[in-house]
């Protein structure tokens, strides 16, 4: 089970994943050796799964971000699997989530501009199988995106 020191380590590492071990240890009032052993244990337990780079899609030239909320036609027994398999094949999809609620699936899609978005939507999204309804939310601004857990 986690104790307060583990939580403190995770909080600091979550705030700044690039912290070097000695700095992290100092922030938590530990020796580097003890901090290192605790981090290693958290990794072994699968609590720390790794680090990923955050890509700024705007800086890469993808200025349009759309969240598509999709309701599937559940009368077809394999609707979810077939839809998800096809959606994974669309290069511009960066996130896929499934839900319990009014919406079945959400696709987060990036596009270079509105013209590009229109092409993706017509040629790659509307051709996905088993769609009953689609609602689009276009991102105007990302206000908070740290995805930190309230440890």
């Amino acid at each position: 089970m986690l104790d307060d020191t583990d939580r403190r380590l995770l909080r600091h590492l979550q705030d700044d994943p690039s912290l070097a071990l000695p700095e992290l240890a100092e922030l938590c009032g530990l020796t580097a050796g003890r901090a290192g052993r605790r981090i290693e244990k958290l990794r072994e337990a699968g609590i720390i799964k790794g680090q990923e780079a955050v890509i700024d899609w705007k800086a890469l030239g993808f200025s349009v971000e759309v969240s598509l909320r999709i309701t599937l036609d559940k009368t077809a027994p394999s609707a979810f699997d077939e839809f998800l398999a096809a959606a994974r094949g669309v290069a511009e999809v960066i996130e896929i989530q499934t839900f319990l609620g009014r919406v079945d699936v959400r696709l987060h899609i990036v596009a270079r501009d509105l013209g590009h978005w229109q092409t993706i939507y017509r040629d790659k999204v509307l051709t996905l199988p088993h769609i009953a309804d689609i609602e689009a939310l276009m991102t105007v601004a990302t206000v908070k995106m740290d995805e930190a857990l309230p440890l």
Binding site: L10, L13, P17, I47, I48, K49, A53, A59, L149
Partner: peptide
């Protein structure tokens, strides 16, 4: 430098942490 790599995110197992 071009801001394409915008930082790092620690990937945690939320369920194992009780969320």
């Amino acid at each position: 430098d071009e801001g394409i790599l915008a930082g790092r995110r620690l990937v945690l197992d939320a369920a194992k942490l009780g969320f």
